[in-house]
Measured scan of single mutants.
Amino acid sequence: MSIQHFRVALIPFFAAFCLPVFAHPETLVKVKDAEDQLGARVGYIELDLNSGKILESFRPEERFPMMSTFKVLLCGAVLSRVDAGQEQLGRRIHYSQNDLVEYSPVTEKHLTDGMTVRELCSAAITMSDNTAANLLLTTIGGPKELTAFLHNMGDHVTRLDRWEPELNEAIPNDERDTTMPAAMATTLRKLLTGELLTLASRQQLIDWMEADKVAGPLLRSALPAGWFIADKSGAGERGSRGIIAALGPDGKPSRIVVIYTTGSQATMDERNRQIAEIGASLIKHW
């Protein structure tokens, strides 16, 4: 067993022997301040990774656009098919120029040779490549099948209805392509620590998230040296922004954090800054 596999296998073990965790309302004060600064709703939840206990939450059962955070769930569904012998990570998928959609920095470079399922998941999570996500959605049967996968996990809230990039439209009061912070946090925890996926697939999923290259201005910008984070960000229309993450000190994750916002007129930089400040408060009061 590799060191990384050992780390993920012992996530519940280490967490069980940690000192009790206590909620700190100071972080919620910052979440509410972010709402004021952005002029928009902000949803927040913080779960203990081992027990699933909610440590703090704000608007945990209000719907927010998922945006690209759905790509972690998508690759979880792909990995479940791999575990069941219905898919192979090494299978190569070929596609054409007509398949390319807006923001496809990886797939646009491989029109000639195609990409493997493993490479597509890596591109979808680490670079948020939209064509990679659409190609992977095709392998599982489309958005409705991802929703069905989530329902089978016990998540009857999260739903995907459309493809990239239309799913980022974020129309107010439109339930399409949305989740709730509580539902997303619980589902992410199941994917990373539950028995739904094999140990190898859980490790692969967290490795992809740990290698995320496009979430630097968010929670990662607030992390002290030595902290662990595996995350996936999302951005959408109407001032929408979000991030889902597993993080913790001492090089291992111990909490799940989900943050979503929508309806702001603020710039992307300002949305990023507010999420980073929430992260800084979380870490300060850990």
Rank of each mutant, 00 (worst) to 15 (best):
H24Y: 08
H24F: 10
P25G: 10
E26I: 15
E26H: 15
L28Q: 14
L28T: 10
V29T: 13
V29Y: 12
K32G: 13
K32L: 09
K32A: 11
E35T: 04
D36M: 14
D36P: 05
Q37I: 10
G39I: 12
G39R: 08
A40C: 10
A40Y: 04
R41N: 10
V42E: 00
G43I: 01
G43N: 00
Y44L: 06
Y44P: 00
I45G: 04
I45V: 15
E46F: 14
E46H: 14
L47A: 12
D48N: 06
D48F: 03
L49I: 15
S51P: 03
G52Q: 14
K53L: 13
L55Y: 10
L55W: 09
L55T: 10
E56S: 10
F58Q: 11
P60H: 12
P60Y: 10
E61K: 12
E62S: 07
E62V: 08
F64R: 00
F64E: 01
F64H: 01
M66F: 08
S68K: 00
S68G: 00
S68M: 00
T69C: 05
T69K: 00
F70W: 07
F70Q: 08
F70M: 08
K71V: 00
V72G: 03
L73P: 13
L73M: 11
L73V: 09
L74V: 14
L74D: 02
G76K: 00
A77W: 06
A77P: 02
A77D: 07
V78L: 10
V78P: 01
V78D: 00
V78M: 08
L79W: 00
S80E: 06
V82M: 11
V82R: 08
V82D: 05
D83Q: 09
D83G: 06
G85C: 08
Q86C: 06
E87Q: 14
L89M: 14
L89Y: 14
L89A: 13
L89V: 15
G90E: 13
R91E: 14
R91Y: 11
R92P: 11
R92H: 11
R92A: 06
I93E: 04
I93T: 05
S96H: 08
Q97Y: 11
Q97G: 12
N98Q: 07
N98K: 08
N98E: 06
D99M: 08
D99N: 10
L100E: 04
L100T: 12
V101K: 11
Y103S: 10
Y103M: 12
S104P: 03
S104W: 01
P105H: 08
V106R: 15
V106S: 15
T107R: 02
T107V: 10
K109N: 12
H110P: 04
H110C: 06
L111Y: 13
L111T: 07
T112I: 14
T112Q: 09
M115L: 08
M115D: 02
T116V: 14
T116I: 13
V117S: 03
R118E: 07
E119L: 03
L120I: 10
C121W: 02
C121G: 05
C121S: 04
S122F: 13
S122P: 03
A123M: 04
A124T: 14
A124S: 11
A124W: 03
I125H: 03
I125E: 02
M127P: 02
M127L: 12
S128H: 03
D129S: 02
N130K: 02
N130R: 02
T131C: 11
T131Q: 04
A133D: 03
A133G: 11
N134E: 01
N134Q: 03
L135S: 04
L135W: 03
L135V: 10
L135D: 01
L136A: 12
L137F: 14
T138D: 11
T139R: 14
T139N: 14
I140F: 14
G141Q: 13
G141R: 12
G141A: 12
G142H: 06
P143A: 08
P143W: 03
K144I: 15
E145S: 09
E145Q: 10
T147W: 05
A148G: 09
F149Q: 11
F149A: 12
L150R: 02
H151I: 11
H151W: 09
H151M: 08
M153H: 07
M153K: 11
G154M: 13
D155S: 02
D155C: 02
H156A: 08
V157Q: 08
V157M: 08
T158A: 06
R159Q: 14
L160H: 06
W163R: 10
W163A: 07
E164W: 01
P165E: 09
E166V: 11
E166R: 13
L167I: 11
N168E: 03
E169C: 14
A170R: 09
A170E: 08
A170D: 08
I171D: 15
I171C: 15
P172M: 12
P172D: 06
N173K: 12
N173M: 08
N173C: 08
E175V: 11
R176C: 15
R176N: 11
D177H: 00
T178L: 03
T178R: 01
T179W: 00
T179F: 03
T179K: 01
M180A: 07
P181A: 14
P181V: 13
P181W: 00
A185M: 01
T186M: 14
T187A: 11
L188F: 06
L188G: 04
K190Y: 15
L191S: 03
L191G: 01
L192K: 00
T193C: 13
T193G: 13
T193Q: 13
G194Q: 09
E195P: 15
L196S: 09
L197H: 05
L197S: 05
L197F: 14
L197Y: 05
T198P: 08
L199A: 12
L199Y: 06
L199R: 09
A200Q: 10
A200K: 15
S201D: 00
S201L: 12
Q203V: 06
Q204V: 12
L205Q: 00
L205S: 00
I206R: 09
I206F: 06
D207N: 13
W208N: 03
M209G: 03
E210S: 13
E210T: 10
A211H: 15
D212K: 05
K213H: 05
V214R: 13
V214N: 12
V214M: 06
V214A: 08
A215H: 05
A215C: 05
G216Q: 13
G216M: 15
P217T: 13
P217W: 14
P217F: 07
L218A: 03
L218R: 01
L219V: 09
L219A: 03
L223K: 06
L223T: 13
L223V: 15
W227Q: 01
W227R: 00
I229Y: 03
A230S: 12
D231M: 04
D231T: 04
D231I: 04
K232G: 01
K232A: 01
S233F: 01
S233P: 05
A235D: 03
G236I: 02
E237R: 12
E237F: 11
R238E: 11
S240V: 02
S240I: 02
R241D: 00
R241K: 15
R241T: 08
R241N: 04
G242R: 01
G242C: 13
I244C: 12
A245E: 00
A245S: 10
A245F: 03
A246C: 09
A246G: 13
G248L: 01
G248D: 02
P249D: 11
P249Y: 06
K252L: 15
P253C: 08
P253S: 08
S254Q: 14
S254M: 11
I256S: 02
I256Q: 01
V258A: 06
V258Q: 01
V258E: 01
Y260H: 00
T261P: 03
T261W: 04
G263H: 12
S264V: 09
Q265C: 08
Q265I: 09
A266C: 14
T267N: 14
T267P: 08
M268V: 11
D269L: 13
E270P: 04
E270K: 07
N272E: 12
R273K: 14
R273Y: 07
I275M: 15
A276P: 02
E277D: 05
I278A: 02
A280M: 14
A280N: 11
S281N: 15
L282H: 02
I283F: 15
I283D: 02
K284E: 13
K284F: 07
H285V: 08
